[in-house]
Design a protein around this nucleic acid. Structure first.
Ligand SMILES: [Zn+2]
Length: 676
DNA sequence: GCAAGGTC
């Protein structure tokens, strides 16, 4: 350890922060200029005096302990807390543990100053339990890492928050029990059937996500496009030409009737042109998933990549903590200081100047609805980059800065112009927008709409130059991107800001998902795991399990239930499920999984794809596709007013919109000439 | 080797 003031004499108070950045803020808030920054084991800590008493502020780095077992096989119900380098091989944890072990030895009291949430309670508690003494421990409770909040929390130290700790411990145990046991159940099943070791996994968050992706993928592959008939017209007016779809009908005959009458009339009359002003409020500052969505939309970045970049910017001191759900910028932040800092970055000098003029120095940001227990929305710190940012860093930083600036700006004024065109048989509204006042678009141009108002005037006669009936086809549901999958997880409330992108990547690492042209597709293994889980462990495939856990944890926090009873109940439920599975279902599950991996031959292969068939001819996917094709034929005949089976198959087989399994079956039927 | 949760 460093000499002098960095080795305080026995009897100091040890304040444990969740991370180095938080430790620095706490030290500064409590010790001001007199906080001495020291380093040991490559980890910073601070020594300071408050009212003459000596304190040391030292950081953890998130969880430094995790659950671990050395038992093999399943069911496995015994586990213990061990240092994270043992539990997960997390080498970086070692130096933090080493420092905390050293500092805990001579401390007289221990103060858990980790983020005030269940995980923070567990992080601090495990350190104090293993390296210090819980009988001399306290909790600091603050909802933001601002000097005021920190000082207030320090003056009002509370005893250890046992209900919160117990809830956090229960969360870890429940996830471990379900996750480890069901993962092993999957792997053992494959091993039983093939003798091979394949890494498979399941869990409260990853499994509902996999099932969601599989459902979407199946709907896409089973999509039978239906025809629609659009009446398109080319018009000529005083201000130029325009092309419009003026009607869309399911039945060809109806669309044709409209087209004929429009052509016969030869003109359209502009019966009205109306403009309506809309005030578009600036969006709030980013939370992590908003940032991930924008980076995906604008630059095609995956959520995990965006997060990695944001974390680096945070570590470099350029932006605030990125793993936040908050869309709020609390007034305790030093807005003016941040803006002054940004003004010294050439790219933002003019924008900041403009913003200060526009707001006349009254800095009141829009606040979004989403909240976070520990961190505000992502914002720049105002620090000037001390190195050249790479392209991705520059883009992400730019998005964050601009979104922050926009939050203080005025609404944009957009005019929506709607023209009503009268074709005799139909009246059509054509609308478009134009920006009248740029407002916040000046700072955040990425959401600015294009000017596209219809160029026609009231009372004008537009000449119909051409009329065509165009056949279009219904589109399959949209494929997920990684960012959309992360957003789905957020919407249904599973995972956290810190874990969602990582868990999506886990599904890829397991071979459940693949990327194709930037879109998520589900592999045969992914479908098989989803099917096995839904059949044998349906609870784990539903987001309802997270809701149930939340209720249980809340009960523990309120003292209505005890951790031990909640954990015992989970073990009981799992024990029944797993014993039953082992006896009756494991071979079936193993076969389903092994066949999807092509480790086992199908007994009666699907004539199209070789997967196991249901009826000796088609697999479950192609059988479903055949059913969809038959239903589609009825609909196509209704819409077209008559079409033969073979022509129908030919058209469906050739359409871009057709789902893969449907196309397979259509082609197969055409080749073999088999009747449906 | 397997979860989900922290953070580096
Ligand atoms: Zn098949």
């Amino acid at each position: 350890m460093v000499a002098g003031g960095c080795r305080p004499p026995r009897g100091y108070g040890l304040i444990i922060a969740e991370k180095p950045k938080a430790a620095a803020k706490i030290a500064e808030a409590l010790g001001g200029r007199y906080a001495r920054r020291c380093t040991a084991y490559g980890v910073p800590y601070w020594v300071l005096r408050v009212d003459g008493r000596l304190f040391v502020v030292a950081p953890a780095a998130g969880h430094l302990y995790g659950l671990y077992t050395d038992e093999r096989g399943f069911p496995v119900f015994t586990y213990r807390w061990v240092p994270l380098d043992v539990a997960e091989g997390a080498k970086h944890a070692r130096k933090f543990l080493a420092l905390l072990a050293t500092l805990c030895r001579d401390a007289s009291i221990y103060i858990n100053a980790c983020d005030y949430d269940v995980e923070g309670s567990v992080i601090g508690y495990m350190i104090i339990r293993n390296l210090g003494d819980v009988r001399r421990a306290y909790r600091m409770k603050f909802s933001a890492l601002t000097p005021t909040d920190i000082r207030r929390a320090f003056r009002r130290l509370e005893p250890l928050d046992w209900p919160m700790i117990e809830a956090g411990l229960a969360r870890h145990e429940l996830d471990w029990l379900w996750g480890i046991n069901v993962s092993r159940a999957l792997m053992e099943a494959v091993k039983l059937v093939t003798g091979k070791k394949v890494v498979l996994s399941a869990g409260r968050v990853q499994s509902p996500t996999l099932v969601e992706a599989a459902k979407r993928e199946a709907r896409r592959r089973l999509h039978v496009p239906y025809p629609r008939f659009n009446v398109q017209v080319w018009l000529a007016g005083r201000e130029g030409r325009l092309k419009l779809t003026i009607a869309s009908r399911e039945k060809l005959i109806e669309a044709k009737r409209i087209a004929d009458r429009v052509a016969a009339r030869g003109y359209a009359f502009v019966s009205s042109v109306a403009g309506r002003r809309e005030y578009v409020k600036p969006p709030p500052a980013f939370n992590l998933s908003d940032l991930q969505m924008e980076a995906a939309r604008l630059y095609g970045y995956s959520p995990a990549f965006t997060q990695e970049i944001a974390e680096q910017l945070y570590l470099d001191g350029l932006i605030s903590y990125p793993r936040t759900n908050s869309q709020k910028l609390p007034h305790t932040l030093d807005f003016r200081g941040i803006l002054e800092g940004l003004a010294s970055i050439p790219a933002y000098t003019q924008l900041v100047k403009r913003l200060l003029l526009e707001t006349r120095g009254v800095l009141r940001p829009v606040q979004g609805p989403k909240e976070d227990p520990a961190h505000p929305a992502i914002h720049p710190t105002g620090a000037v980059p001390r190195r050249k940012l790479n392209r991705a860093e520059e883009r992400i930083y730019d998005l964050i800065v601009r979104r922050f600036l926009a939050a203080f700006s005025k609404p944009a004024v957009v005019e929506r112009v709607t023209a009503t065109l009268d074709f005799g048989v139909v009246r059509v509204n054509v609308s478009g927008t134009r920006v009248l006042e740029e407002g916040w678009y000046v700072y955040y141009p990425f959401s600015r709409p294009k000017d596209d108002i219809p160029r026609v005037s009231r009372g004008e006669r537009l000449r119909v130059e051409r009329v065509v009936v165009e056949t279009v086809y219904t589109e399959p549901p949209e494929a997920y991107t990684k960012a959309k999958l992360v957003r789905w997880m957020e919407e249904v409330g599973i995972g956290t800001e810190a874990t969602r992108a990582r868990i999506v990547e886990t599904l890829f690492d397991r071979g459940y998902l693949r990327l194709s042209g930037g879109y998520v597709t589900v592999t045969d293994l992914g479908f098989a795991v989803a099917e096995v889980l839904e059949k044998f462990f349906p609870k784990l495939t539903s987001v309802a399990m997270t809701r149930e856990f939340e209720r249980l944890l809340e009960d523990i926090r309120r003292g209505i239930r005890r951790r031990a009873e909640v954990v015992e109940e989970a073990k009981r439920v799992l024990s029944l499920l797993l014993e039953d599975y082992k006896k009756r279902a494991m071979r079936d599950a193993g076969l389903m999984l092994a066949k999807s991996l092509r480790l086992v031959e199908a007994e009666r292969p699907c004539v199209i794809c070789g997967r196991e068939s249901v009826d000796g001819r088609l697999c479950r996917f192609h059988l479903e596709a055949l059913e969809a094709l038959k239903r589609g034929f009825v609909e196509w005949r209704r819409r077209l007013g008559g079409i033969g089976w073979e022509e129908y198959l030919e058209r469906v087989a050739s359409l871009r919109e057709t789902g893969m399994w449907v196309r397979d079956v259509a082609k197969y039927l055409l080749e073999t000439g088999l009747a449906p």
